[in-house]
Amino acid sequence: MSVREFDVAILRDVVEELCGELACELPNDIYNGIAQALDREDGPMARQVLNDLLINCDIAAKERVPMCQDTGMIVVFLDVGFDVRFLGDPYEAIDEGVRRGYKRHVLRMSVVRDPLRRINTHDNTPAMVTTRLVPGDRVTITLLCKGFGSENMSRLAMLLPADGEEGVRKFVIDTVSKAGPNACPPFVVGVGIGGTFDQVALAAKRALSRPLTEPNGDPFYARMEQSLLAEINELGIGPQGFGGRATALGVAIEVLPTHIAGLPVAVNINCHMARHIKEVL
């Protein structure tokens, strides 16, 4: 098996470019999701909000200005082929890409170096990177630009096996209800089920990177995604919490094997500006 040498400057340049694209252009699946939600609303207030959100996206794309002033923290899922050999430090390359991207695209610097002493890094680094080794010689990079209005309303619970599907369902609905207008509905709801305390949160985050148009590959969980979405959209919260059908645009579930004694569940809320992008290098 031959080794593929991979210059990390490619990673840096891709991240620089994608930071601007994420901030200023809503992915098609989300844009279409908002447009479809607009078709289903009958109240004038909900329709006005959804319509304004689409206009906002059009202005942002045309003028290359961020859709939302919270241009977030960059979350990266990096899947690296076994046969890739990096020339240079890929983590430093990603941070350099963020640094250059946030400056060049005139985005807001929203990261503090230390959670309690809270000194801004002034370049939006570091990115939150999760690396996986996978077969092959490609590097797949998935970027999320995560705002904290919705991140703050996310929750994790260590349920009991006896709580089962019903317990998970209740926790998801309860989390979405509590998020309400603060997290900027309509949401995209990422749900992690299983694994360990740490891995379940990552699964929920990873779920947010899956396009709305792609259900879970397991029909059991695809049905659960649909029924949760239907239930969420009967809560009445609606766009911006002013009342309406569109409380969520989609629910994505990612599952992991877990321990005989546990049922971890994590719910990661994303606002309607669900900024995600994937490139295979």
Binding site: N56, V65, H272
Partner: peptide
């Protein structure tokens, strides 16, 4: 008053 959260480009105008 509520302004639309996430509509930063629109509100900026």
């Amino acid at each position: 008053f509520a302004a639309i959260g996430g509509a930063g480009a629109l509100l900026s105008q």
